[in-house]
Amino acid sequence: KITVTFNGEEKARRYYKKMQKHNLKVEIRVENNQWVVHVE
């Protein structure tokens, strides 16, 4: 499981979509004013 933190929504969403293309289970959320993407 990987957790990647971004300081911008745009970058986070781009990464999220990229990971989805690989058929990975991805989850995006905001934690402590940071955009966090969890990849299983």
Rank of each mutant, 00 (worst) to 15 (best):
Y15N: 01
N32V: 05
K18D: 07
K18F: 14
N33E: 08
K25Q: 09
V4M: 11
K18W: 15
A12C: 05
E9M: 12
V39L: 06
E9F: 14
L24Y: 14
K17V: 10
W35V: 03
N23Q: 08
N33C: 10
Q34L: 14
K1P: 10
K25Y: 09
N33W: 04
K25M: 08
M19S: 03
Q20C: 13
Y16F: 12
Q34E: 06
V36A: 04
R14K: 11
N33P: 01
E31P: 01
E10H: 09
E9C: 13
E9I: 09
I28S: 00
N7C: 14
V37Y: 01
I28M: 08
K21I: 08
N32D: 08
T3K: 09
E31D: 06
L24W: 09
E9P: 08
H22D: 06
R29I: 10
W35R: 00
T5Q: 06
Q20Y: 06
H22L: 15
E27K: 06
K21H: 09
R29T: 13
K25C: 11
L24A: 07
F6G: 00
M19C: 12
K18M: 14
R29H: 13
H22K: 14
R29L: 11
E10N: 09
K11H: 14
E10R: 12
V30T: 06
E27S: 13
E27F: 09
N7I: 08
N33T: 05
Y16A: 15
Q34Y: 10
N33K: 06
E27T: 14
W35M: 02
V4T: 04
V26W: 02
Q34T: 09
K17A: 12
T3I: 12
K21R: 12
N23S: 07
L24M: 10
K21N: 09
T3R: 10
T3Q: 06
I28N: 00
V26F: 02
Y15E: 01
E9T: 02
K1G: 14
R14W: 12
N33D: 10
R13E: 04
V4F: 09
R13L: 12
Y16S: 04
N7F: 10
V36G: 01
H38K: 08
H22W: 10
E31K: 06
R29D: 05
K18C: 15
R29A: 12
L24P: 04
V26I: 05
V37G: 01
N23E: 05
E31F: 07
I28F: 03
V39N: 01
L24K: 08
K17F: 09
I28W: 02
T3S: 09
E40K: 07
N32R: 06
V26K: 00
N33H: 08
V26R: 00
Q20T: 06
E27W: 09
K21D: 11
R29K: 11
K21S: 13
